[in-house]
Design a protein around this nucleic acid. Structure first.
Lengths: 149, 149
DNA sequence: CCCATTGGTAACTCTTGTGGTTACAATAGC
DNA sequence: GCTATTGTAACCACAAGAGTTACCAATGGG
């Protein structure tokens, strides 16, 4: 999963910053600094999660599938992490003594709660908020640079 | 780093459950289900962080370096993750367009906050709490099984 | 109807991280 | 000194992931 989340947020943030304009995977890949194929792999996950819509062919590209204010970093995380990312390791339970299995289930439960705390935090940040931040920074930085690479 | 955190908590929990008794890395490794060398690698990190104390030679082993109530899962995480674990990926910043670097710094900042939320959650759970849970489960389960493998 | 443009995906390589193993040195107690 | 134990280095094996190439599918314009 690693690095795909960063790519996903790059995509969503970039798309939000252009209002509904379809952007090609090639442009998104160049601006992030990766290959179009790698970027499209992430794009595919975002599509399956219903976060973006993509059209093939000449003049094609991707746009946000719904309003950026109804889309959080948590959505992007879940789209990219598949079923269960598993940031923290699982305790395998070890041998069948008494302590090890008890320890394992407790540790795994605590890990779930901690990951949930992280997810909740991500759920408080919308793509719209990210977009607002970017726009405000852009007008501050717009002193003659070009917008793409 | 992965899986080392689970090993670390296994060590700390197991040590807490025996009151001050020194346990060998061999026993800890067997009960977790790994090799002594791998376990000692984690043990070394816990020592550097001042969480356990280890004595070499015959009759040696490890004990908790301070009271289990003054030790949280966060301490174990930091001990094992080194300087900065980096659960979430970093946005590299891409090319030097306008949007990409702004996006990158924003995304990385949000990731830091989310990881901080996870860390805060881990900081609320002490090894003593883990120990209490384990003990209560043990007396419930103690129906004739042996304690080590 | 052909062609240029664009996305979708499979297959492969390469690198990196990490867990496991072996080996050997250091230390402590008997 | 012998044995039990930790400390580490060196190496191997495996898995995950990123990057690349290649080819197919779809779309729109001439």
């Amino acid at each position: 999963m690693n690095s795909q989340l960063a790519i996903a947020l790059h995509i969503l943030g970039f798309l939000a910053s252009r209002d509904g304009e379809a952007l090609t995977s090639d442009l998104l890949a160049r601006t992030y600094g990766t290959s179009p194929v790698v970027l499209r792999r992430v794009l595919a996950k975002l599509q399956r999660a219903g976060l973006v819509e993509t059209q093939r062919g000449a003049g094609g590209g991707s746009v946000l599938a719904r309003d950026a204010s109804a889309m959080t970093l948590r959505d992007a995380y879940l789209a990219v992490a598949g079923k269960e990312g598993g940031l923290l390791p699982q305790h395998p339970g070890g041998c069948d003594g008494v302590i090890a299995p008890i320890l394992a289930s407790y540790v795994n439960e605590m890990f779930s709660e901690a990951e949930q705390a992280l997810l909740d935090k991500l759920g408080t940040i919308t793509i719209a908020a990210m977009d607002r931040h970017i726009r405000s920074q852009i007008v501050a930085a717009r002193r003659g640079q070009s917008m793409d690479c």
